[in-house]
Computed example of a mutant assay.
Amino acid sequence: MSAIYLLRRALLFSLALLCGCQQSTAPPLDQQLYIWQRQWTTAHAEALAQSRADFSTLRVLALQTYPQGGWRRAQIDGALLQRDGRPLIAVVRLDGQLKHLDPVDTTARILQMIADWQALGLTLAGVEIDHDAGTARLPAYREFLLGVRQALPASLKLSITALPAWLDSPELAALLAAVDSSVLQVHAVSRPELGLFDPVQARHWAERWSRITRQPFYLALPAYGIALLPGEGGAPLVESEVPIERVGQRRELMADPQQLATLASQLRAEPPPHLAGLIWFRLPLKGDRRAWSLTTLGAVARGEQLHSRLALNLSNQQGLYDIVVSNDGNLDGTLPQRVTLAVSQCVAADGLNGYAVQQTPGQLSFSRLRDGRLPAGAERTLGWARCTHIDQGGSHVFP
């Protein structure tokens, strides 16, 4: 057997291996964003602009109905969405506590919403129905979805928000066959006191879902927090975007970016069958106190290493110093517990924004009075001091 023949066989074998590897490589997971604010503000423009590079599609709360309050439209900025140009999916939220779904009225309202959005110059890619139907009501829900599917223009995809509680229902496969895709929500689906999110449970649910569905599905992941307040009868009240006017100590729960980053990395490396992407809830606006910063959300979406980096910044105007701490990392962090300054001849000082100051010879110490977050890229003024000199090199920030 000639050396040329052996060389040719080796090359063909190598090419076959290469082709096999290329065929088995999974496509990258798509990443999308929910926009869940019912009233849009000027802050949406900056948030949308900063999110464009990392998130392909916007799923926008459009229409909502309540058991007592009836129907409400989200007050979107159509011109802003038109300029943004990304694919749009309008989300219709049907409260799970509704005793009855009127399919004719609901479908008519969905079609009217679509027409109104089109009149604003918006082109929809699809409609998502978000309805926390009880397991026993899944057959009726499927019939409702088939009616909506028939009424929608053929160009629009129909998707649903889905719950892990449906996994044990024999009706689930038929329900999923009635829509083009599903969004499995894996956050805020257990009792609030058990926490907001469990990454191990989320991965388990995704694996089970992938064995039932034959259509693409997405995972809805949390990038926000909630607060629990004491409620009557032992069940806690949940405070999210809208403050609750109630006296009582709040227990803050925030989705952990490190946990979500690990889960997203695992899903990219070994995606379950039919998993098409991740959808993050929700687009954060500047000053949103119960959401990750867009800096942290983008870093998680890109798979970057996460880190907080606290830095001390002093500004001096004729002996009057402002003491400012900043987070120069890409991970939202907590405000420092204490900041000490090496000083000379201070005649006055005071703490601000939840900090108190204590003065000893040659030192000022600013101590945190209550917990607080310092988002990535943000800064907080801790206080001021009138001194002859502050030695920044001899000052320390204690996380």
Rank of each mutant, 00 (worst) to 15 (best):
D105C: 11
T135P: 12
A90P: 07
A173L: 09
V91S: 04
P192Y: 08
L81V: 01
W166D: 05
Q97T: 11
L176I: 03
E143P: 13
I114P: 04
H100F: 13
D84E: 01
L175T: 02
D95L: 03
R73Q: 12
R142G: 12
L158D: 07
A90T: 02
A174T: 08
G85P: 05
W166G: 04
L194E: 15
L146I: 15
H100Y: 14
Q118W: 01
V148S: 07
V183A: 14
V186M: 10
A165S: 15
L122T: 00
V189W: 10
V127D: 02
P87Q: 00
P67W: 06
Y66V: 08
R137G: 13
L138T: 02
R93G: 10
L138R: 02
I89K: 07
G85M: 06
I114G: 00
S155R: 14
A115T: 10
H100D: 14
Q64M: 11
G126M: 02
G126R: 06
P164F: 05
W166K: 02
V179P: 08
A165H: 12
V127L: 04
S159D: 12
R142M: 14
G96L: 08
S181D: 14
A173E: 11
A151V: 11
R93C: 10
S159R: 10
G70F: 03
G85K: 06
L80T: 04
A74T: 01
L194D: 15
D130P: 01
V127C: 06
K99M: 14
G70L: 07
A108K: 13
H187V: 13
R59M: 14
V60F: 05
R72I: 09
P192S: 07
E143D: 15
A154Y: 12
V148I: 11
